[in-house]
Amino acid sequence: MGNVTLVIDGREVSVPKDFNIIEAAKRVGIDIPALCYDPNLEIVGACRLCLVEVEGWNKPVTACSTRVQEGMTVYTETEQLIGLRREILQLLLDNHPNDCLTCQKAGECLLQEYAYRYDVKFREHDGDRRRALVDTSSPYILKDDSKCVLCGKCVRICYQVQDRQVLSFGGRGFDTKIVVDADLAFEESSCVSCNRCVTVCPVGALVDKRVLGKARPWDGDIKGVKCKACDYGCNFEVLSKNGKNIAVRARSPLKGRPLCLKGRLMTEFIYLDEPEVPYRKEDTQFVETTWEEALGLEGVLMKLSKDE
């Protein structure tokens, strides 16, 4: 495929012609803010933070959905764009709980990062807010609707696996929310706790419950590991604090692989100093189980040493 050359914020860049502006900007170290964009997911243009100006075009366009063109001149941080981004971020913060002090996502939250970058603050108001519905039914995923920014990444990544497609949008307008199956709790639903959704959530609306309260990125170490449950090896992360491995979380599926609970539990079992009790779903309930059963190794003599 041929390359095209364009100028982004005064910097010339040559990229393949099927690139969008966000990816082209990355090549020259320009990070265009976006909550709903993920190179591995369908582009939806929902958050509207990645608006950029293109010389000669009469309106700002989303950098995620606009392909590069030869000779294009793009501006990513004009006064107008900053004004729009600040207002959009303010709208999101006006509808988001002020919980960064204790939120598990703090330090890795994109909303927090952009609010800092564009100097937008929480403020008091007596307008309506998202309902604070928290789904605590699963031992693996915590879903807090009040923190959701409706980027829809979770829906899209869940949709990619044919036999899952558990998450979707429910409601309309201001009342829109992410629903599990027909608006069920995780434990009643067909969710298999693969945590794909957790890996893409840009805020603290979907978090790994087994990491909750254990460490945040600045007070521990994070090491990337490959899953050993099957030959593909999806990406996981081992979190450690004070020299002890305390939690495992899913990072990203390998192309064409779905991520799975079994792989995550096996990684926990292999790496963690004191792995928590595993759970399995029985009909519409999570019940405690044994490691042999959770890993599908009943009857097999387990010689796996934790040091390995």
Partner: peptide, 17 residues
Amino acid sequence: VDESCGKCTPCREGTKR
């Protein structure tokens, strides 16, 4: 506000405000 689909931020949050 009633008829906004809820997909994009400015329309979903902004019209409500």
